[in-house]
């Protein structure tokens, strides 16, 4: 398991591994939004949490088809499936590696990007908290989507369409948490809902992912 995680991280950081992909996309969205909605700072402050969350979600979506497709193409998945590693563990590790290479940089970069969107000072803590809590769910759900579409050539579009509805609850409660935090309102409800979604999918989805992966390998 550890070997698989280390190998995935090593591959992500080497040339062509796609490590900067998500964060670069996030940066582009955040830089372009002020140009497109105009310089009115009140409006930017209002939409900042939502824009940051949407940017993070789309950045995450961008790299989903790399989670399993590359291992499928070079035959690694077949060989891993006949190895002592349980597939449930394999998909969990894959999701973890995706989160470390995509989710964590987004969480770290979000406060910097928040400045660009004129996010109020009290909002930074909750923005980081909501992303830190929400992005693991994005990676785990994304891995499920990748398992569903593995083996389909250029399945990126299908993957996005399948995954988007599953991302909606995380987006709603994540952005709501960040918004309420920025406006100084009570954050309990969205915080609990977001935590519930994340821990729920981490507990359940790896089993579903392993099941569909096993069927796709037949």
């Amino acid at each position: 398991m550890k070997a698989l995680l280390l190998r995935d991280l090593k591959l992500a950081f080497r040339a062509g591994g796609g490590f900067g992909l998500g964060i670069a996309f996030f940066l582009i969205v955040v830089i372009l939004v002020p140009f497109s909605v105009g310089p009115e700072s009140g409006l930017l402050t209002k939409i900042a949490p939502g824009v940051l969350w949407l940017g993070a979600l789309l950045a995450c979506l961008l790299s989903l088809d790399r989670i399993l497709a590359l291992d499928w193409e070079d035959g690694t998945l077949d060989l891993v499936a006949t190895s002592p590693l349980p597939l449930e563990g394999v998909v969990s590790v894959k999701a973890l590696a995706h989160w470390i290479t995509t989710g964590v940089p987004l969480v770290v970069a979000a406060p910097v990007f928040g400045v660009l969107l004129n996010l109020p000072p009290q909002g930074f803590v909750w923005l980081v908290a909501s992303l830190a809590l929400g992005t693991p769910a994005l990676s785990v759900i994304g891995t499920f989507g990748a398992a569903l579409t593995v083996g389909i050539k250029r399945g990126g579009l299908l993957l996005s369409l399948l995954i988007l509805p599953l991302y909606v609850p995380t987006l709603i409660f994540g952005a709501e948490l960040a918004r309420r935090g920025a406006e100084g309102q009570d954050v309990t409800t969205p915080l609990l809902m977001l935590a519930g979604i994340t821990f729920g999918v981490i507990a359940l989805l790896p089993f579903a992912s392993a099941l569909v992966l096993r069927m796709n390998l037949r």
Partner: peptide, 13 residues
């Protein structure tokens, strides 16, 4: 131990 047409190698390793 199974070995198929593709070798499961990572080109960047």
């Amino acid at each position: 131990a199974y070995a198929a047409h593709s070798d499961g190698l990572k080109t960047m390793l």
